[in-house]
Design a protein around this nucleic acid. Structure first.
Lengths: 233, 233
DNA sequence: ACAAAAGTGTTACACGTACACCCATGG
DNA sequence: CCATGGGTGTACGTGTAACACTTTTGT
């Protein structure tokens, strides 16, 4: 049995994949291999298949491009202007993924001519993909102010300096080192490791990692990692 | 030209319509008029038409049921489990609407056998609609803590007492009257009217209304109307 | 005059912010 | 021994929370 007299529509998932290379935010884009807009830069996407949910489609697509699974990913929103794709009507559901840029496997994505672009210097994107990226960035800024999600962009072990740079990049601001350290450590989300990163100083900076227990318990709480002034607008 | 070999899917919009009657939150539900699940309680929904966006579909559906337009409404998220509708695969995009329960026109919705249910006493809903409602409520609690959106549930003129009851209901808590008044008034979002509501006291309580200018400017800011302890979890 | 809700102020505490110096180490 | 980044403490101001009494007026 079917519903009668109703229009069935193509549904696609597009993945907005953020990375952080230690000093700036990057976005993973592919060079589209088929018409329309062949060879133009685009988000990685694909059509939803018969028996998969949107979440499953997003995971499949992310896996295809990066070789990664079990990464942080969440639904952003649906984009549905009837003429957003010139070929045929397609409703796109955008997903935001945060990945550790070092785990990303280059070889897999060679097929897609993928490239990391600095967020401050993105190429023109096809369709409404630029709008999707802006929307994703806005939501990320919003959410990261209260929830510990930016950690997803770092390797398992990282220094406080790296973490601070991550926040400073997201809000395009300078944060006081002492206040930041105190605030972050007071959440007990971080565990101090025994070893140090000596790559950027003689003294070496202790690594920290996420305390998964505390992380999960606190995830839904409001944390407020960054100075209040940066939150407006 | 069309994309070949891809599955086209029915896309529906379901509206989660909240109201507030002065003492409790309510949800507007309809008694479904067609199979499957005929006569079961359901969110108001409908299929996306050929040339409308999801936002347009949501407006159309809300208008059909309530006779209202230009109400506060925003996309919640897409629900896409392949078997969520037993008849045929349907991807549903849920929208949340906040309406002034007094403006709602009963006659229009008689066709749909619509009824307001107290949020604390909802009937069993069809498909995954209960999940949608829970998700909507969660998002509303989250968002209303920082953005002045609950005002949308009140008439144009309201008393501080009504406003406080609104917040107390949303977070199921008691708020100190003096602190609440000071905090709300300090945002300058409210304009004091000249007249009073005498329906609930001899002395009468001044009406207030939204200062649209300040409202728009502040909308994206973080306001924090409610005590911090209520924000966890 | 009294009941019932409206309206208003002060104090203590916690949190956020600004700010500068010593430490450890490799070269 | 010195240059470099790592790591730490305090003082001040703002904002939040706790708390109770006076005002108004219809009956």
């Amino acid at each position: 049995m079917k519903y009668s007299n109703q229009t069935r529509i193509l549904v696609a998932v597009d993945c907005i994949i953020f990375g952080f290379d230690g000093s700036e935010y990057k976005l993973l884009l592919i060079q589209r291999g088929f018409a329309p807009e062949k060879e133009k830069w685009s988000l990685m996407g694909g059509f939803v298949q018969k028996n998969e949910s949107l979440d499953e489609a997003a995971e499949r697509i992310l896996m295809q491009l990066t070789g990664l699974h079990e990464v942080y990913m969440e639904q952003l929103q649906a984009f549905s202007k009837p003429d957003r794709d010139p070929i045929e009507r397609v409703i796109a559901v955008a997903y935001v993924a945060l990945i550790d840029i070092n785990k990303y496997q280059t070889q897999l994505s060679d097929d897609f001519h993928a490239r990391w672009f600095p967020m401050k210097n993105l190429p023109k994107l096809i369709f409404d993909h630029t709008e999707m990226v802006n929307s994703a960035l806005h939501k990320l800024r919003y959410k990261a102010a209260f929830h510990p999600i930016l950690f997803e962009l770092l390797p398992e072990k990282f220094t406080l300096q790296q973490l601070q740079t991550l926040f400073e990049g997201m809000y395009d601001t300078k944060i006081d080192k002492r206040n930041f350290t105190r605030k972050v450590l007071s959440t007990n989300i971080l565990k101090k490791e025994k070893d140090k990163d000596k790559s950027s100083s003689k003294k070496g900076a202790f690594y920290y990692s996420i305390d998964e227990e505390v992380y999960k318990d606190n995830f839904q709480n409001f944390l407020n990692f960054i100075p209040k002034n940066e939150l407006s607008g």
